[in-house]
Design a protein around this nucleic acid. Structure first.
Length: 273
DNA sequence: AGTAAACTCCGGAAGC
DNA sequence: TGCTTCCGGAGTTTAC
């Protein structure tokens, strides 16, 4: 499930594969994955050059020239790949964009269709959320800013998962960060003292950076653009480890529901203060 | 008003 | 073999 490290991996690989390329024909085979009006894609994208592919929150953004943005949210099962145009397509391929002067194309596949595409350009109407609707990047947060963000009465895990508050954390990296920082997921965020808050921010950054190095976590569907798996799942200490001994204290990992999600934690290392 | 929980989308996997 | 159930990112709706 693509969270920040997975989206970062995909963006970097797509950048290497596509920067400098010029987009060509657009084929949308499922209109409902396009947010807003799907027509601008075919009108706006062809002949624009890919200046850069980057990540914002959990999204992958193609920065185009002349100025436009093509934004992909991957949901749980979304995949972006660059393929030879004539090769067999996954049956859930919803969007294809040819790359001019090559026999390759960018493909967006998403079996469960929780993902989506936005085309942001002058004259291309779009409703729904913009990139600015998501909160700050966790890797850029200062301790003071983070303390301000968490000065609310919500449960800390719910808050970390809220994309309006902080961008890019999902179930895996929330649980892993909370465990690394020794914070119980149900702790009221505004009861964390300064020390715990700083510990938590450091844990978030450390784990995200390590996960990016490992090209993300492949738990079920996620694959990189080149079709390989990430390897950070080998370093998970709590996520989907119910009943297994905590790597720190050997207490069995427990599973509860928080923020409507399966939540894994060590009842000994992570206690509500 | 701020928070939490329930519901929605969907297909794959697991269980019976 | 064929049902039913579960799961989840994120938006929306409902309830406290």
């Amino acid at each position: 499930m693509p969270e920040l490290p997975e989206a970062e991996t995909i963006a970097r690989q797509l950048h290497d594969a596509m920067a400098g390329c010029t987009l060509g024909d657009v084929i949308v085979t499922r209109r409902d994955i396009v947010h807003g009006d799907p027509r601008p894609l075919g009108r706006v994208l062809p002949d624009r050059r890919v200046r850069q592919v980057r990540r914002r929150a959990k999204r992958v953004v193609l920065e185009l020239d002349p100025e436009a943005q093509l934004v992909f949210a991957l949901g749980m099962t979304g995949r972006l790949t660059v393929n030879q145009s004539r090769t067999n397509r996954d049956k859930h391929t919803h969007l294809r964009i040819s790359i001019r002067g090559t026999d390759r194309e960018l493909r967006f596949c998403d079996p469960r269709r929780f993902g989506g595409v936005w085309c942001l350009a002058e004259g291309a109407k779009h409703k729904g959320r913009r990139l600015s609707d998501v909160g700050p990047e966790p890797l850029e947060l200062t301790p003071a800013h983070f303390r301000r963000l968490i000065s609310r009465s919500r449960q800390i895990k719910t808050l970390l998962m809220d994309q309006h508050m902080i961008a890019g954390l999902g179930n895996i990296y929330c649980d892993e960060s909370l465990h690394a920082a020794g914070v119980h997921p149900l702790t009221k965020a505004d009861t964390l003292d300064r020390d715990a808050a700083e510990r938590l921010l450091r844990a978030i950054k450390r784990i995200l950076k390590r996960a990016i190095r490992e090209q993300g976590s492949t738990v079920s569907d996620y694959q990189t653009t080149s079709g390989t798996s990430g390897s950070f799942q080998n370093h998970h200490r709590v996520y989907q480890k119910e009943g297994r001994p905590c790597r720190t204290c050997s207490t069995p990992i427990e599973r509860i529901t928080a923020a409507g999600r399966s939540t894994f934690f060590c009842p000994s290392c992570q206690q509500i203060s």
